[in-house]
Design a binder for these strands. Structure first.
Lengths: 224, 224
DNA sequence: CGAGTACTTGAGACGCCTCAAAAAGGGTGG
DNA sequence: CCACCCTTTTTGAGGCGTCTCAAGTACTCG
């Protein structure tokens, strides 16, 4: 039951993360609500999130925004920028961040000569692809209620893995606009769905945190 | 204008394809409408499509189906199965297929020792990820009409690249049910959208082929 | 405490869905 | 080469889920 939400986690587990640690060039702090990278810019660095939440997104010329992924503590901002020189998306911070920076050039050069490193990073990208495809299923097939429930369960599982869940409560810096843009809904409807989940005593918002009150029933709501 | 639909193509161009050619173990023919691989099975082989169309999909327990990608001639069925031992999706043929098979084990072993190979295959997976994310934008933000128009333009661009477009007409073995399952719609609505495109003289169905009658206006319909 | 931001709630509209039945294709065997 | 059957597509009618617009309420932070 809890399994399905754990299956795809840890796309950048100890293995890949430790393999690149020697290429770290230091860390950087960033404030909340900053645009870290902008679509179309050349990729100049490779970064892993140590603290805080960020998200990757793409803006359509008419203003529509799709959030591609939410980046949680421990995760690389976007692994696949190791293979491309132009950014195809933008990145914003939700909270204050601490980033670990890497020497991107050196990492790329090393990959070319070190099959084991390139393989492990390729594996992590392959996992990202599977995650992206599971989001595709949500957007293509699931109802708004299912999508919201799954997003909550996914975040919970990811954070639990990093030991960032207390009881069943975890920090939740997303505005409803973010959830809307991640799940292809309007903020108004996100609000109604949250009301429904709250009314059914499945979750609760406590300040900037979210509590899962009934895990089993939330999984049911999340659908097959 | 035509650019935007070309940008993400060729995820398995000459580079990666030729790098692995020496691991080919031969070819295999498969009939139309066969299930080649089933979700949950162990991955036993790695294959590239030489001829014909196939698609990767995932079935939810209640019968909903999401098509994850359509595999066209020249493309690997699923590159990221080089990094995982369990299939997270199923694959069916749309037409008769010719597959080139590879020695998956040898390829993986070689990647671990040959950084250049692992890097190039990683690059191809990174491109797949970008493609998957562009589908995410379609499903999350675009209207049914835009999605269908973009799918047509995407297939057209991919096939043109392989020189499989005559004039602006190309083979089109997809049933409307497939389009529906790829784009998160019902077949009934796909039919109505196609009527609209046909009525506006943008495309036409000729037997099992599709013709683009007015490329520029189809691009407009495809949205920003 | 005030001002801005986020959230909630209501009412009405619209896009897409469901169900159903008819029409059009497309193979196949006689 | 036609007649038949099965699959696919089309069309219609009505319903539901989600959107839009708008106004009111509740936070949050300086």
């Amino acid at each position: 039951m809890r399994q399905s939400f754990m299956a795809l986690l840890d796309s950048f587990g100890g293995d890949a993360a430790s393999a690149i640690s020697k290429y770290s060039t230091g860390t950087r702090l960033t404030a909340a609500r900053r645009t870290l990278y902008r679509e179309g810019e050349p990729v100049t660095e490779f970064a892993q999130l140590l603290e805080g939440w960020a998200f990757r997104f793409k803006l359509l010329p008419d203003g529509r925004r799709q959030i591609l992924s939410i980046v949680l503590p421990g995760e690389p901002i976007a692994l696949h920028t190791l293979w491309t020189d132009d950014l195809s998306f933008s990145v914003q911070s939700l909270t204050g961040l601490e980033l670990r920076l890497f020497d991107r050039r050196a990492l790329i050069d090393q990959m070319r000569s070190d099959g084991s490193l390139a393989f492990r990073l390729g594996e992590a990208v392959a996992r990202e692809l599977m995650l992206s495809e599971s989001r595709l299923i949500s957007l293509g097939q699931r109802t708004a209620l299912e999508r919201v429930a799954r997003l909550i369960l996914y975040l919970h599982a990811r954070l639990k893995q990093r030991d960032l869940v207390e009881g069943e409560t975890f920090p939740f810096p997303l505005r409803q606009q973010h959830i809307a843009d991640a799940l292809g809904m309007t903020p108004v409807h996100v609000s109604r769905v949250f009301s429904e989940l709250r009314g059914a005593q499945l979750v609760d918002r406590v300040g900037a945190s979210l509590a899962i009150l009934d895990y089993a029933r939330l999984v049911e709501v999340a659908g097959p």
